[in-house]
């Protein structure tokens, strides 16, 4: 790994200042960033460890929304009674990330800031029409994820929490790569409070996206068969040694169907 300076600020304001003055990178759980640094794929000059900022962790209900702090670990989301009561699909999703040891370190904020093409959280954030709260502003899910490993975050912007409006029904289904367990295709389906349906897909393309034909079909009939009957266009989908674009397109309908079945 390349050399770097390290800071452990106690407040959000100090962390933002440190990022602005050094051009460094925030460190959450480090389950992607530390691994990338070891491979010299990332070389931040300064790491600003967010671990000491207590206001960034925690789970709470705020009106009709479930708010999860950016530094909340996946394992804590998976075990949270508040999450299981409000949006159980998020607990299921969190419990399926990586393995137990990774879930004990990795965080929601770190995952969406990294925006790995096969990460699970972006699908939930987009499908639930969640709002990403930062130290500067609120960003709608649709505006947050820009492309492969790319988000709307500014250099000294820090995610503080994600606010998920509680949907009527929601579920996540993923087809994991048999070796890496990353999502070859993962689909998060949500029927929002206003009755509209969103289906967000991860793993299949360079970044999370909404599958419009699936949403249209599910808006008419929220059934597994309606999702499975949709023929998804393979154009623009990932085509690699793990699976062809056509195979992934097929999986999108299949996993959407399984998600709808799980949503009940």
């Amino acid at each position: 790994m390349y050399t770097f300076e390290y800071q452990l600020p106690k407040t959000l304001a100090d962390a933002a200042k440190a990022l602005a003055s050094t051009g460094g990178k925030p460190l959450a759980g480090g389950q992607s960033l530390v691994a990338a640094m070891k491979l010299r794929l990332a070389q931040p000059g300064t790491l600003v460890d967010l671990r000491g900022i207590s206001e960034l962790a925690g789970i709470r209900k705020e009106g009709d929304a479930l708010v999860i702090g950016a530094m909340t670990r996946h394992a804590d989301v998976a075990n949270s009674a508040v999450v299981k009561g409000a949006i159980p699909a998020l607990a299921v999703l969190a419990d399926g990330i990586g393995d137990r040891q990774v879930r004990n370190m990795g965080t929601l904020g770190g995952s969406i800031a990294n925006n790995d093409p096969a990460a699970d959280w972006p699908a939930a954030v987009v499908a639930c029409n969640a709002t990403v709260q930062t130290n500067k502003r609120k960003i709608a899910a649709g505006d947050f994820f820009k492309g492969m490993y790319e988000t709307a975050l500014g250099a000294d912007e820090i995610i503080t929490a994600v606010s998920f409006p509680i949907p009527k029904k929601a579920a996540y289904a993923k087809f994991p790569n048999p070796a890496s367990r990353f999502a070859l295709v993962g689909v998060f389906v949500a029927q929002l409070a206003d009755g509209s349906v969103r289906a967000a897909v991860t793993g299949a393309a360079p970044a999370v996206f909404r599958a419009a034909p699936i949403e249209t079909a599910l808006a008419k009939s929220f059934t597994p068969d309606a999702a499975k009957a949709v023929k998804v266009d393979a154009k623009g989908l990932n085509n690699d040694l793990h699976g062809s674009a056509a195979y992934r397109a097929h999986l999108v309908s299949v996993m959407a169907g399984r998600a709808v079945a799980a949503a009940g």
Binding site: L27, G30, L47, D49, D99, Q101, V102
Partner: peptide, 21 residues
């Protein structure tokens, strides 16, 4: 997972965590 240890009571992979964490 050969490097698994307990950090504040939780199993983690110590090869993927900085000592400073």
């Amino acid at each position: 997972g050969a490097c698994t240890i307990h950090l504040d009571g939780r199993a983690i992979k110590s090869c993927n965590v900085l000592a400073l964490q």
